[in-house]
Amino acid sequence: MENVLGRIVAGKVTDENEEDYFVQVAGTTFRLSKSEIKKPLHLGSNFRGFTYENEDHQMAMTRNAPDAQVDHYGWGTVVRNQRQLGVFVNIGLPDKDVVVSLDDLPDMMELWPQKGDRLLVTLREDAKHRLWGVPADMDIFQAIAQPANKHMQNANVTATVFQLKLVGTRVMTEHFELGFIHPSEREREPRLGEQLTARVIGVNDEGTLNLSLKPRAYEAIDDDAAMLLAALEHSQDGHLEFSDKSSPAAIKAYFGISKGQFKRAVGHLLKARRITQHDGALWLVPVTPDDPSTPADEA
């Protein structure tokens, strides 16, 4: 069966029953479900389809070929993992998930893909005629990548992790831009195949992205700081006659929080550069397009 499994090949219809046609390719007979065929096939006619071994260990053929084939890459969705084997990936076959071997996965199992994660894979046939999924390497991702636009600065992107290294995490966005996440720009290391929402913090001259998984300063503020910021934004001239010198009673009456909560909220907003404090008052800092804390839809 060399050069047959995991590919689209032509064969001859040799038999049929109520449910299947039987197509012979290079001396091997494959089942073809009649549910896929709109116009009946005749014995002796030729048929082209994708060949594989299904979950019942039967040689099968389908007209609905997956994108992932031998020498072709396609996205698949992880359905489960097995510690001693690897992860099972749905590439679109009706009765078969392909396995990505643990040899092609991170050494740390907690970084393995989980159910719902995505992998770009090709197929490989081993010496026992079993099909395995093989993740795409950096060369493949570079070959299919599209250059990023300079206007993407500070935008949110959806990206899939495809490479884990000590220096950082490499991803590809849903629009095929390559991205890199430095360890300092994440709270934890993402899994292989994990889909992330990241923020563009740099667009390199070669068209790749530097990304961050950390929230913008305005997104990271707590409820008290958000309430204080909203009060400033709705004030008539962007300031409020309060400071860390204001009395606890006045703060409680106006904001409904303690002076300690007020001071923490003020400190948070000062650190985020959203306000200034002078002349016994709090002042809102106008947001400009060049401000790195500006939301993408405001920039």
Rank of each mutant, 00 (worst) to 15 (best):
E2N: 11
G6C: 15
G6V: 15
G6P: 15
G6Q: 15
G6L: 15
A10V: 06
V13T: 04
V13M: 01
E18C: 00
T29F: 00
T29M: 10
F30V: 05
F50P: 15
T51N: 15
E53M: 12
M59G: 05
D71K: 07
G76H: 12
Q84K: 14
D95I: 13
D95W: 11
D97M: 09
L102I: 05
K115M: 11
K115R: 15
G116L: 10
L120T: 11
R124A: 03
L131T: 07
V134L: 01
D137N: 07
I144W: 07
K150I: 06
M152A: 10
Q153T: 09
N154C: 02
V157G: 04
T158D: 13
V161P: 06
F162Q: 12
K165G: 03
K165T: 09
R170F: 14
V171K: 10
V171F: 13
T173V: 09
I181Q: 11
P183C: 06
E185N: 10
E187R: 09
E189C: 02
R191I: 04
Q195N: 14
Q195S: 14
L209V: 04
L209F: 10
N210F: 04
L211F: 08
P215S: 00
P215N: 01
R216C: 00
E219N: 03
I221G: 03
D224K: 12
E233Y: 02
H234G: 00
D237N: 10
G238E: 07
D244K: 06
A249C: 00
F262M: 02
R264P: 00
V266F: 02
G267K: 06
K271F: 04
L282M: 05
P286N: 08
V287F: 03
P289H: 13
D291C: 03
P292D: 07
E298D: 06
